[in-house]
Design a protein around this nucleic acid. Structure first.
Lengths: 200, 200
DNA sequence: CGAATAGTGTCTCTTAGACAATATTTA
DNA sequence: TAAATATTGTCTAAGAGACACTATTCG
């Protein structure tokens, strides 16, 4: 039997790419950022001496002017025929940022992000599922909102992430254990001012 | 600015490996399979024309005589210094099989699998968490048990996976909605025979 | 005041968890 | 019969969800 682990360089190696679903909440909708003018997620090839997270940040900086992201890994796509240019594996990532920090990406509601290049439809799906899992556990783990937030703000985010309207009272009681009142109020245009909270 | 996507072959490429935590339940314990005589998980380098799942199956067949596994991806480990032989990324996988189907692997309780090579300690940890998540949702998603099972069998598996003893009555009521009675009984050495169920 | 938003009281239903009792087998 | 295992009855506590009500602001 041939030895299993010959020296590293004896093996032909695939190209390794990263592709990233940049998610945000804009208005009432969960949106994903596409490369301007193209039906695809931002991505790039992994460079020597670079980690996957580095490559994700580089691609977002170069293609969208988006700095300092904290990418999370989703899945490696490895179908042999996924890229007509050759043997390319892609490590899918997800990044969550506030809507005003998505750089030059074109924001599209996740429900409308269909027919993208490569396996990017699947990446968007997995990214949404990942985010729903995150927000099921905690009020705002990805800091879509600032340090001080009202329950109305928070509920809007959760409604966008989950894609359904939530009852204000049930939602309030579910979130309160995770929040710390600041004692301050936020006054709106109309109605009773809301308490401001901080993440506990 | 330099073009971002030069032809594929212009980039130096990392070696890509797969490493697999083979999990099983033996007796009352959740165990992981190590390569005989070595403190490491079975793994190999990805070959040309092969998917990651193929590479996992090949490594398990060659190193442990374990056929037909259905690997699930966990995480890509990409620390630049994780392998002293060079630039190697590893895609961690998990495979769950009955204890009598682990081939020549050395079974070690997951709680005792410490000090393994590379980042294999972390892989075991992630594999255990993955499996706990799976078994929190369904009675036996990985078919550790055969087609017909008793609630005692099932509880033993869940106790091993969760690492704690479970109350028979509460467990029974939690599982019944997922099970279909066969009408048959399984007689033991002593005690009332148990109903046999099938996964619904 | 009326509209709009924030927040609370309270009821119901479901579920987890536990304890105790009953049922059926083997030795 | 005694011991072991399987199964069910029942109680309690906690939580989700819904409805109705109260509170506070602006125009």
């Amino acid at each position: 039997m041939a030895p299993i682990d010959r020296p590293l360089t004896d093996y032909p190696r695939p190209s390794l790419a990263v592709d990233t679903a940049v998610l945000t909440v804009r208005g009432e909708e969960l949106c994903v950022g596409l490369v301007p003018g193209k039906p695809r997620l931002p991505g790039t090839f992994l460079h020597e001496g670079e980690t996957l997270a580095d490559a994700v940040r580089r691609s977002l900086t170069q293609k969208a002017g988006l700095e300092g992201a904290a990418p999370a890994q989703l899945h490696v796509f490895d179908a042999l025929d996924r890229d007509s240019r050759g043997w390319v594996l892609s490590v899918a990532h997800v990044v969550v940022v506030p809507a005003d920090a998505t750089g030059t990406l074109e924001l599209v509601p996740t429900s409308a992000a269909r027919g993208l290049d490569f396996d990017h439809d699947q990446i968007v799906q997995q990214a949404v599922a990942w985010m729903q899992g995150r927000y099921a556990e905690r009020p705002d783990p990805e800091h879509l909102l600032g340090a001080e937030l009202t329950l109305r703000d928070l509920r809007r985010v959760h409604e966008a992430v989950r894609g359904e309207v939530l009852q204000p009272d049930t939602f309030r009681r579910a979130m309160l254990p995770w929040l710390e009142p600041t004692g301050l109020l936020r006054r709106g245009d109309v109605g009773k001012p809301a308490q401001l909270f901080r993440r506990r």
